[in-house]
Nucleic acid binder design. Structure first.
Length: 437
RNA sequence: UCCUGCGUAGCUCAAUCGGCAGAGCGACCGGCUGUUAACCGGUUGGUUCCUAGUUCGAGUCUAGGCGCAGGAGCCA
C-alpha cells in the first residue's frame, strides 16, 4: 500500500505513488472522468479519477460518492497548473471508509445563495468544515500562541486562576450560578483578583482561559462564554500599563499577519489597516474623548457617562490605529480601580478601542493598593466584606502600585479577521439563547 | 429587557386585491476525458411555526404564543 501523506506535504512527493485519507469536499461528474476534491485537515487537493485507471467497482463508488464521505484515494502525485493548489492526484485506487449520509445539509449552493445564520449555527458541528471557518479557527490558534509567546518572553508567568469561585468580582447579577456541593458557587467572569494575589509570588503573571458572563447581551460582540487573557504586573502604574498593552497588541497582530496571510486571504481581509498597528498608539484623556464626541456627531454627550458602541465607533473613526482612552469617571468603572490622586472623580483606567468599529478590545487599570481605600470602596459598592477578606489581606503584606488588563480573544479575532459577528470567532459559541451544539 | 423586521419544499426565497402551492439550488437517475459555484435532459420534493378567530374561502386579515435576524442597553 502506498504511503499516506498529508496534502500540505505534496511538494515533497511529486512523482511518487501516495495515498490520501480525508473527506470529499467537492465533486464534479464528467462521465468517465471524476474530479474529487479531498480535504484532509492540512489542506485540500483535487483527485482525478479516470474510469480506465481503476477497477470498475471502485470507479462506480467514486462516481456516486457523497459529499463529506471519508475515503482513501491512492495514485500518482504530480504538479498540475490547472488544479487548484497546483498539485493533483491521478487515482488508481478509491476506497470508501465511511459513506456520508445523503444529502449533506451544508452542500454549497451553486447559485450563489447562502445558508441562513440559524441553520448554520444549528449545524455548527458540520459548519466547522467550511473553508472560511477553518481559516478563522486557524487564525485563532495562531493568535493564542502569539499571546502566550509574547507574555512568556517578557517576564510573565502563566498562573491559572479558578473557574469555580465563591463570589463575584463585580456583583453577582451577571454570573452563572452553580452549586459547589450544597453551597452556592459561580463561574468566573474574570481571573483578575486571583492574579493580583499571584503577582506577590511572581511579579508579573497572566491567566488565560474561558470566562463566563450571564449578561442578556444579544449583540454581535457578545458571547456568554469567551476567552480572556489577563496580565497583571506588580510595581506598575498606568503609563507603563499602556506601554505594555501597545507592545503586546502590536506583536499579536503582526505575528498573525506574518504567519496566517493565507487564511486572512481566504477571509478576504483588507490588510492595510492591520499593517498600521505598530507602537505608539494614540492616547486621549476621557475629557478629550468627550470633546471629540461633541465635535463628531454627539454634541450633547454628558461628561460622566460610559461610552456605548456608537460612541466608541465615533472615537475610533478619528484614528487609523487602536486608540487608548484613559482616566474614565470613577462612577462607570469597577470598584477596585485606583482613583487619580489629582482628580479623584476619575480612575487610572485605560480602554483600548480597535479601529473599524470593532469596539473595546482591552480594558485595563491601576488597582487600589491601599487597604483602607479598598475597604471603603467595597463598602460603598455594598459588596460582602467576608468574600473579599483574602483580597483585602493582599494589601497588608507588601502592597504596591500594580496594574493589569484584560484582552478579549474573540474581540481581537473579529477585528483581525474582519468578522461581522462573534459567533464565528468561537468553535462552539455560547450566545444569548443558544448553547447547542 | 426594549425597538424594527421576518417565519412557505432539505436550503435560499416568490406567491398581485383573501381565490388551484411556485422557482432556483441541493438530492436522485441518465449523458459528457479538464471541471474550478461545470453544462445538458429527466425525477423527487409541502403540518405555509403553533393556537384560536373573521370569512363561502386564509400562506395572505385579527389576537395570543413560540422561534429567528438586525439594532440598542450592558460589557471584553
Amino acid at each position: 500500500m502506498s504511503t499516506t501523506i498529508k496534502i500540505n506535504q505534496a511538494a515533497h512527493h511529486v512523482g511518487q505513488d501516495v495515498a490520501l485519507t480525508g473527506w470529499v469536499q467537492k465533486r464534479a461528474d464528467k462521465g468517465k472522468l471524476q474530479f474529487i476534491t479531498l480535504r484532509d485537515g492540512s489542506g485540500a487537493m483535487q483527485c482525478v479519477v479516470f474510469k480506465k485507471n481503476l477497477p470498475e467497482e471502485q470507479f462506480d463508488a467514486a462516481r456516486h460518492i457523497t459529499l463529506e464521505s471519508a475515503v482513501r484515494i491512492s495514485g500518482g502525485l504530480r504538479a498540475e497548473p490547472r488544479a487548484p493548489g497546483g498539485y493533483e492526484l491521478d487515482a488508481t485506487a478509491f476506497e470508501v471508509i465511511s459513506r456520508a449520509a445523503d444529502p449533506y445539509p451544508l452542500a454549497p449552493k451553486r447559485d450563489g445563495g447562502e445558508h441562513g445564520t440559524d441553520f448554520l449555527l444549528n449545524h455548527r458541528h458540520l459548519w466547522l468544515r467550511d473553508p472560511r471557518q477553518i481559516a478563522i479557527l486557524r487564525i485563532r490558534a495562531t493568535l493564542i500562541k502569539a499571546i502566550r509567546d509574547w507574555l512568556d518572553g517578557h517576564g510573565f508567568t502563566l498562573v491559572d486562576t479558578p473557574i469555580i469561585t465563591p463570589a463575584a468580582a463585580e456583583g453577582t447579577t451577571n454570573l452563572f450560578a452553580t452549586k459547589y456541593f450544597d453551597e452556592p458557587a459561580y463561574l468566573a467572569q474574570t481571573g483578575q483578583l486571583y492574579s493580583e494575589a499571584t503577582i506577590g509570588a511572581f511579579g508579573r503573571v497572566y491567566c488565560f482561559g474561558p470566562t463566563f458572563r450571564a449578561e442578556k447581551s444579544d449583540t454581535r460582540r457578545h458571547a456568554m462564554e469567551f476567552w480572556m487573557v489577563e496580565p497583571e504586573m506588580a510595581f506598575t502604574e498606568l503609563d507603563e500599563n499602556m506601554e505594555v498593552i501597545e507592545q503586546f497588541v502590536s506583536y499579536c497582530i503582526q505575528t498573525v499577519l506574518a504567519q496566517r496571510a493565507d487564511d486572512l486571504a481566504v477571509l478576504g481581509r483588507d490588510l492595510t489597516h492591520l499593517q498600521n498597528v505598530v507602537p505608539p498608539f494614540p492616547r486621549i484623556h476621557y475629557d478629550d474623548a468627550v470633546k471629540l464626541l461633541h465635535a463628531n456627531g454627539y454634541p450633547d454627550f454628558p461628561w460622566g457617562e460610559d461610552f456605548g458602541a456608537p460612541h466608541e465607533d465615533a472615537i475610533s473613526a478619528q484614528f487609523d490605529k487602536p486608540v487608548f482612552v484613559h482616566h474614565y469617571p470613577r462612577a462607570v468603572k469597577a470598584f477596585y480601580m485606583q482613583p487619580d490622586p489629582e482628580r479623584p472623580e476619575t480612575v487610572l483606567a485605560c480602554d483600548l478601542i480597535a479601529p473599524e468599529g470593532y469596539g473595546e478590545i482591552v480594558g485595563g487599570s491601576q488597582r487600589m493598593h491601599d487597604y483602607q481605600v479598598l475597604l471603603d470602596a467595597i463598602d460603598a459598592h455594598k459588596l460582602p466584606r467576608e468574600a473579599y477578606e483574602w483580597y483585602l489581606d493582599l494589601r497588608q503584606y507588601g502592597s504596591q502600585p500594580h496594574s493589569g488588563f484584560g484582552m478579549g480573544l474573540e474581540r481581537v479575532l473579529m477585528w483581525l479577521g474582519g468578522l461581522p459577528h462573534i459567533r464565528e470567532a468561537l468553535p462552539f459559541p455560547r450566545l444569548y439563547r443558544r448553547y447547542y451544539p
